[in-house]
Amino acid sequence: MQDKEEERGDGSEEVDLMAHADALYAYAMARLRDSVLAEEAVQETLLAALTARQSQSNNFQGQSALRTWLTGILKHKVVDLFRNQIHTVANDDLQGAFEQAQFDSNGHWRLKPGHWPTPEAAVEQREMGVALSRCIGALANPAASVFIFTEIDGVPPREICNNLGISPTNYRVILYRARLALRRCMEQHGFGPNGEL
């Protein structure tokens, strides 16, 4: 009901920015896994953007340029919030137990990794992408975020350690557990020994 009013003029900045709120929230949720923190990150981003646009009269060529700019701001907010969160997440034990369960007492695989056929068609590639998306969604933090920062955002390991305040050893263990879990999850989604692509 307020939308009409906003479109008339002085509210157009908000309408512009709100158009990106859902995408920004999805980005933040994928990394923070906490709806309160994710909303906080989006709000801080939109407010910072509003302030910046008012003072610098930024002109963006289009919505995609605006999205890129907003995501850049959000990225930093997410890292800040995640840094505070990472030391309180209590699922390290859970993921440690998952790691232990993958191997027997001699350190041999309990469930041996299967053969993954190389996807030929674009459709198969996309299917693997959808499955990976789901598996990342099912992964808990800090494994999920560390995997996303490393493999999707392409942040260098040293930078991730600095940003999050974790040791290189801790980083390696978290990422290893993420990969173990994702590999297993992909096989449960039918990529692997008993499934077909």
């Binding site: 920015l17 008012q54 995997f147 392409g154």
Partner: peptide, 30 residues
């Protein structure tokens, strides 16, 4: 796969959260 995929874990803002964001933006408007 991660590099080639747009990861979407299916998170969406609730209407209440959108309303909160909108009013936060309006409060900030000069």
């Amino acid at each position: 796969i991660a590099a080639a995929t747009k990861i979407d874990i299916g998170a969406q803002l609730s209407d209440e959260a959108k309303a909160r964001l909108r009013s936060a933006l309006q409060r900030r408007r000069p």
